[in-house]
Write a protein that binds this DNA or RNA. Structure first.
Length: 501
RNA sequence: GGGCCCGUAGCUCAGCCGGUAGAGCAGCGGACUUUUAAUCCGUUGGUCGGAGGUUCGAUUCCUCCCGGGCUCACCA
């Protein structure tokens, strides 16, 4: 138990007094007729009418025998006017035992105050939940239609650890998550309209695959078996394409046991889509249409602002082959460069080449350092080196490349896609190359999946695949600088508890 | 993991060259029946993140630890 401070003790006393007044501080339900927002929006027709609204008490201005207070529900904030001669002695005694943070319901008459604020003259007040822990009090006023906050609840650690408080006190946080939900709904609708099937595949996997990353490991007690939390669902979705589904997608929580920063949380959400008989050119069109139509639907525009950058998501997006991008931003043509030449080029660009890096890795580094951050407007980077992409099909015109693209927006990739490799012999060779990397100590190299190869041996149609990072897309569309601002409960170290255990 | 910065009341923050803490808001008591960052008067509240060290004396200086933020590295 943490030390009970004075504020909690006072609130518990008030709780006791409420009970003595015959009030149930935790009743079962409250019928409301309107939300706070509806009261404001429908004021014309509701004026002088009786309504019932409920919400959390956010501010209190007591003036002897009358008081103004503000309640907030999910939609808006509304002022209540409580007069002793309206609610009665008993009602006013109850009111005086309320604290900021309590949840109440009221019945009363809609009116406008002398200063023009839509309010409710309370006739009857019901306690719905007595709060015994003090809420940070955020003072705010509306100035020229903008919300001005005086004592913001701004400590990021507290906001992330106690997201419930963050949501109560900072309404704009709620807006971000509402948009996140709308983004997912819009994406799902877009995919369903095209006839693709939403499916579910295993999170606990005996062999992890579909991406280059280190996994989380767990154990199944009964089977006495090591299981991995999925790092991607790609290989399972492709098995479904083998099975005869022609368009499948999944919103997948993936888990990667890696560092955390502004763009990375150990668990994150990705939407993966696989469509039979299509290639990556087709998928590029789908991707630009998907993202621009989500923006249109959720934000009402395809022109967005992200961290000060004006970004136009209107299709078509620029398509820039990886090596042309490098040429454009470094002046170096590395298209046919050998590994030695790549090393020399990298050093000239002040990139320290680690000795275990292959040519793919070096190219990726140069790209990541010199090209990607410059790509503010939506750009498809296309045609990656073969060795970086063990699951992608060889480029139809250049066997050193694969047919792969990443949509880059605001200098960050928001997805990954390719013409899927469906040649089982080629796939086996690629896995074997990965296993060799693994043997050399690359812990992120991919693992050979015999069952997946067996599936490919039965035959998979030509297929286009796409993964979209939902968290990053949400950051982009809500203009949030950190992934932690678009995940309700981002990963944190455990809180230090007061007592030793 | 490296670098920089932060941790003081429920919240937001001051606290100088070392003398065991202060403000605003919230809370509590009082005045006030159209206020709105309500106002006015009074007032409670602190293991100064933790453990050591230096010192007569540490919130302040030093070391280590814990937690966090930003940033670089790796990754979506």
């Amino acid at each position: 138990m943490e030390p009970i401070n004075q504020l909690v003790a006072q609130r518990k006393q008030k709780l006791q007094k409420l009970i003595e007044l015959g009030v149930n501080p935790y009743p079962y339900k409250f019928e409301r007729t309107h939300t706070t927002k509806e009261v404001k929006e429908q004021f014309e027709s509701l004026e002088n009418q009786t309504v019932r609204v409920a919400g959390r008490l956010m501010a209190n201005r007591l003036m002897g025998k009358a008081a103004f207070c503000d309640i907030r529900d999910m939609y808006d904030r509304l002022q209540l006017f409580i007069k002793k001669n309206e609610v009665g002695e008993h009602g006013f005694d109850i009111y005086k035992l309320l604290d900021i943070g309590d949840i109440i319901g009221v019945e009363g008459i809609v009116f406008k105050t002398r200063t023009g604020e839509i309010s409710i003259l309370v006739k009857e007040l019901t306690v719905l939940c007595k709060s015994i822990r003090p809420l940070p009090v955020v003072k705010e006023k509306i100035e020229d239609g903008k919300r001005v906050v005086y004592d913001p609840f701004s400590d990021k650690e507290l906001r992330y650890r106690q997201r419930y408080v963050d949501l109560i006190v900072n309404p704009e946080v709620k807006e971000v998550f509402i948009k996140r939900s709308k983004i997912i709904t819009a994406m799902r609708n877009f995919l369903n309209e095209r006839g693709y099937l939403e499916v579910e595949t295993p999170i606990l996997q005996p062999i992890y695959g579909g991406a280059s990353a280190r996994p989380f490991v767990t154990t199944h007690n009964t089977l006495k078996m090591k299981l991995y939390l999925r790092i991607a669902n790609e290989l399972y979705l492709k098995r479904l394409i083998v099975g005869g589904f022609e368009g499948v997608y999944e919103f997948a929580k993936d888990f990667r046991n890696e560092g955390m920063d502004r763009f990375h949380n150990p668990e994150f959400t990705q939407m993966e889509l696989y469509v039979a008989y299509q290639d990556y050119y087709w998928m590029m069109e789908l991707t630009e249409n998907l993202i621009s139509s989500i923006a249109q639907e959720v934000l009402g525009t395809t022109k967005i602002t992200f961290q000060g950058h004006e970004i136009d998501l209107t299709p078509p997006w620029r398509r820039l082959p990886l090596f042309e991008g490098i040429k454009e931003y470094t002046g170096m043509d590395l298209t046919d460069a050998t590994e030695e030449e790549l090393k020399a080029a990298a050093e000239k660009l002040h990139i320290t080449v680690e000795k275990e890096w292959g040519s793919g890795k070096i190219i990726d580094e140069i790209f990541g350092e010199y090209v990607e951050p410059k790509l503010i407007q939506p750009t498809f980077i296309i045609d990656y080196p073969l060795e970086m992409s063990p699951l992608a099909k060889k480029h139809r015109d250049n066997p050193r490349l694969v047919e792969r693209f990443e949509p880059i927006i605001a200098g960050k990739e928001v997805g990954n896609a390719f013409s899927e490799l469906n040649d089982p012999m080629d796939q086996r060779e690629r896995f074997e190359a990965q296993m060799e990397l693994r043997a050399r100590g690359d812990e992120e190299a991919q693992v050979l999946d015999e069952d997946f190869l067996r599936a490919l041996e039965y035959g998979m149609p030509p297929t286009a695949g796409l993964g979209i990072g939902i968290d990053r897309l949400t950051m982009l569309l809500t203009d949030q600088p950190s992934i932690r601002d678009v995940i309700f409960f981002p990963q944190m170290r455990p809180e230090q508890s007061g007592d030793e255990s």
